[in-house]
Computed example of a mutant assay.
Amino acid sequence: MFGYTFYWSIVWDKLPDLLEGAKATLALTVLSMVIGTLLALGLTLLRRQEKGLGYRLATGWVEVARNTPALFQIYMIYFGLGALGLHFSSYVAMLLALSFNNAGYLAEIFRGGLQIIPKQQLTAARSLGISSFGAYTHVVFPQLFRIVYFPYVNQLNWALLNSSLGMIIGLRELTGATQAAQSESFRTFEFFIVAAVMYFVMSKLIEGGARLTFWRVFKG
Rank of each mutant, 00 (worst) to 15 (best):
1 M>W: 14
3 G>E: 04
3 G>C: 04
5 T>S: 13
6 F>T: 14
7 Y>G: 11
10 I>S: 04
14 K>C: 08
18 L>N: 01
21 G>A: 09
24 A>W: 14
25 T>L: 09
25 T>C: 12
26 L>C: 02
29 T>H: 04
31 L>D: 03
31 L>M: 05
34 V>Q: 06
35 I>F: 14
36 G>L: 06
36 G>M: 06
41 L>H: 00
44 T>C: 03
44 T>D: 04
46 L>G: 01
56 R>G: 10
57 L>A: 03
57 L>V: 09
58 A>T: 00
61 W>N: 01
63 E>L: 05
64 V>A: 02
65 A>D: 12
65 A>Q: 09
65 A>P: 09
67 N>A: 09
68 T>H: 12
70 A>W: 14
71 L>T: 15
76 M>Y: 11
78 Y>E: 05
80 G>D: 11
80 G>S: 11
81 L>C: 07
81 L>T: 10
83 A>D: 12
84 L>N: 06
85 G>N: 00
85 G>T: 13
85 G>K: 12
86 L>F: 15
87 H>I: 12
89 S>R: 13
89 S>M: 14
89 S>C: 14
93 A>T: 07
94 M>D: 05
95 L>E: 11
96 L>M: 07
97 A>Q: 04
98 L>T: 01
98 L>F: 03
101 N>S: 10
102 N>G: 02
103 A>L: 01
104 G>Q: 13
105 Y>T: 05
106 L>T: 06
108 E>S: 00
108 E>Y: 10
111 R>D: 12
111 R>L: 11
112 G>C: 06
114 L>C: 09
115 Q>K: 01
119 K>P: 09
119 K>G: 12
124 A>F: 08
127 S>N: 05
128 L>Q: 04
132 S>R: 03
132 S>L: 15
133 F>W: 13
133 F>T: 11
135 A>S: 09
139 V>W: 03
140 V>I: 15
144 L>R: 00
147 I>G: 02
148 V>R: 00
150 F>Q: 02
153 V>S: 00
154 N>A: 12
155 Q>P: 01
155 Q>L: 13
156 L>K: 13
156 L>C: 12
157 N>A: 14
158 W>K: 05
158 W>N: 06
159 A>E: 00
161 L>E: 02
161 L>Y: 09
163 S>E: 08
163 S>W: 09
165 L>A: 13
166 G>Y: 00
167 M>T: 11
167 M>I: 14
168 I>V: 15
173 E>M: 04
174 L>C: 00
175 T>I: 08
177 A>T: 10
177 A>R: 08
177 A>W: 09
178 T>D: 01
179 Q>T: 06
181 A>G: 11
182 Q>K: 05
183 S>D: 02
183 S>T: 14
183 S>E: 06
185 S>N: 05
185 S>L: 08
186 F>L: 12
187 R>T: 06
189 F>M: 09
190 E>K: 10
190 E>H: 09
193 I>L: 14
195 A>F: 08
196 A>W: 10
196 A>I: 08
197 V>K: 07
199 Y>I: 00
199 Y>N: 01
199 Y>E: 02
201 V>T: 01
202 M>V: 13
204 K>T: 08
205 L>C: 12
208 G>E: 07
211 R>Y: 05
212 L>N: 08
212 L>D: 07
213 T>A: 15
213 T>C: 13
214 F>P: 14
216 R>W: 08
218 F>C: 00
218 F>L: 05
220 G>H: 02
